[in-house]
């Protein structure tokens, strides 16, 4: 079981409606369906991933996050999840704003590009960082918009998004929530729970 999935599970209240943007093969959705009795929906752009979801009996749409979110109605989901997805899209800000429109709460996880191993890699090698968490070459990585924890907090503020909660974790560290000292330097990954800041129209 992936640690980030377990972490996300904690935030999902039973019987809620969940949309996973970039749901991959549907593991997280299946977990939330089984253990939270959640009413789950997924979206992914890849045929083979969507096929895996269908084999699991999940409701999923093969669509493009970058341009196909407009058909979702405002606050039609309790949670919208962007699990390691935001850094792979063309317009992360647009997608983030769409997510907080569609979901009452949004859970975002992403790899922190300011982790010390990434910093050292660039400093020492002078090449685009390749780490265990980020194993791709610069030319074939799906992660086209890298950012750091600091960047994310900054952009959330700029877009008037409310940060409800945050957790920092290193994927290997799967025993409970680790306390990470100076997360922008020592956390490989981050999780943020967000919503629209001035949203009196929903609970």
């Amino acid at each position: 079981m992936r640690y980030d999935h377990l972490l996300i599970r904690r935030y999902i209240k039973p019987n809620s409606k969940v949309l996973d943007l970039g749901c991959g093969n549907g593991e997280l959705l299946l977990l939330l369906k089984r253990e939270r009795q959640a009413n789950v929906r997924g979206l992914d752009i890849k045929e083979n991933k969507v096929a895996k979801c269908l084999e699991k009996g999940l409701s999923v749409l093969q669509l493009d996050i970058n341009k196909d979110l407009h058909d979702y109605k405002d606050y039609s989901f309790d949670y919208v999840i962007l699990n390691d997805t935001l850094q792979t899209v063309y317009s992360p800000i647009k997608v983030l704003n769409e997510a907080v429109r569609i979901g009452k709460k949004v859970i975002v996880t992403f790899p922190n590009f300011a982790h010390y191993s990434v910093r050292f890699y660039l400093l020492l090698n002078g090449k685009m960082p390749k780490t265990k968490a980020l194993p791709y070459e610069w030319y074939n990585t799906p992660n086209i918009h890298f950012f750091t924890i600091k960047d994310f907090i900054e952009i959330s503020r700029k877009n008037k998004l409310k940060i409800i909660d945050k957790k920092f974790y290193n994927k290997k560290n799967s025993g409970g929530t680790p306390k990470v000292f100076h997360p922008n330097l020592f956390a490989k990954n981050a999780l943020f729970v967000m919503s629209k800041r001035y949203s009196g129209e929903h609970k």
Binding site: C53, L61, Q62
Partner: peptide, 18 residues
């Protein structure tokens, strides 16, 4: 088809088989 179904809140899945 997907849009028309979703406009009616019908639980819809879609795949483009390659």
């Amino acid at each position: 088809i997907v849009s028309a179904l979703r406009a009616n809140n019908i639980d819809t899945s879609f795949i483009e088989i390659d």
